[in-house]
Computed example of a mutant assay.
Amino acid sequence: MLTAADLPQVIPVFPLPGALLLPRARLPLHIFEPRYLQMLDDCLKTSSRLIGMVQPRGEGDALNAIGCAGRVTGFSETEDGRYMITLAGVSRFRLREEATGFSPYRRFCADWAGFEGDLGRAECDDGLDRNSFMTLLNRFFEEEGLRTDWDSLRDADDEMLINSLAMLCPFEPEDKQALLESPTLPTRRETLITLMEFALMGGTGKEMN
């Protein structure tokens, strides 16, 4: 497990809209663009093997200020030179200035302050009402035409349940960013519930029946 002392000052950044990585969660990625193949190659030569996942903001090259760094924990190469990799979420960070020097991909100075809890143990959510939460989730999945292993969800611990749903549910990029920036697991759960309820209302402000 990485410690605060292991976190580098500069990390490569992979901007990918709608892709959410959270601490202690896992994100599979398909790498095929030449610049990101180079990024992966360079990343694997470092001791931390960290890649920063950040969502683009608006048009152009603008990025959201907060992302999450993941450690490359698994990868396989296809016959045509592409990679399937798995990132294990380590810690969120704030983007500072962009690093100088030539690179085909973007690198940024990372500020890890304020996210020390990301390196600790899994969070619990004492306010989670599982029965009502699973009822809402079932309605949301039916509305969206989604399938899941319900037994696994029911047996998952608080953090695994909430974070997995935050990463997998088909929300807009700005909603994914709000889930990422939630300071605690209970606030992420509250945000997740709000987003599901909003979707069930058809994305309008009308009251639910």
Rank of each mutant, 00 (worst) to 15 (best):
H30S: 06
E190M: 04
I11M: 15
V72K: 14
R106P: 01
M160P: 01
D149E: 09
V13Q: 09
Q55S: 12
D155R: 14
A156S: 15
P15L: 15
M196L: 13
T46L: 12
A166Y: 13
T187Y: 09
D80E: 13
K176C: 15
G205F: 07
S152I: 08
A178P: 01
M134Q: 06
A65G: 12
M39T: 07
E142R: 12
T148N: 06
P170G: 04
N138M: 14
L20M: 10
M208K: 11
L63W: 09
E144T: 08
D129E: 01
M84S: 14
L16F: 13
N138D: 02
L40Y: 12
S76M: 14
A25W: 00
F141M: 00
A110I: 10
V72Q: 11
P23A: 10
L87Q: 09
A199P: 02
P56H: 06
P56C: 10
D111V: 04
V13M: 07
R189D: 02
E207K: 15
V10W: 14
R92E: 07
M201G: 14
M53Q: 03
D118Q: 08
L195K: 02
A88P: 00
L20W: 02
D42Y: 07
M201K: 15
R107M: 11
L179M: 13
Q55T: 06
A25R: 15
L20T: 10
P15H: 03
L185A: 04
L136K: 00
F14H: 04
P23N: 11
S152E: 10
A62M: 05
F133H: 12
E142P: 00
A4K: 15
V72S: 12
M134S: 03
E172I: 01
R154C: 01
P104D: 05
P8W: 05
F141G: 00
R71T: 00
G81R: 09
S76V: 14
R106A: 07
F75P: 01
P186Y: 03
F140S: 02
E172H: 02
L185G: 08
F140H: 06
P186A: 05
G67V: 03
R49N: 10
P12T: 07
D157P: 01
T78V: 05
Q55E: 05
R107A: 09
S103C: 11
M53R: 10
I162C: 04
T187D: 13
T191D: 06
N163V: 00
E207S: 15
G101W: 07
I51Y: 05
A4Y: 04
G58Y: 01
F133R: 04
R26C: 15
R139K: 11
T78W: 08
F198Y: 15
F93A: 07
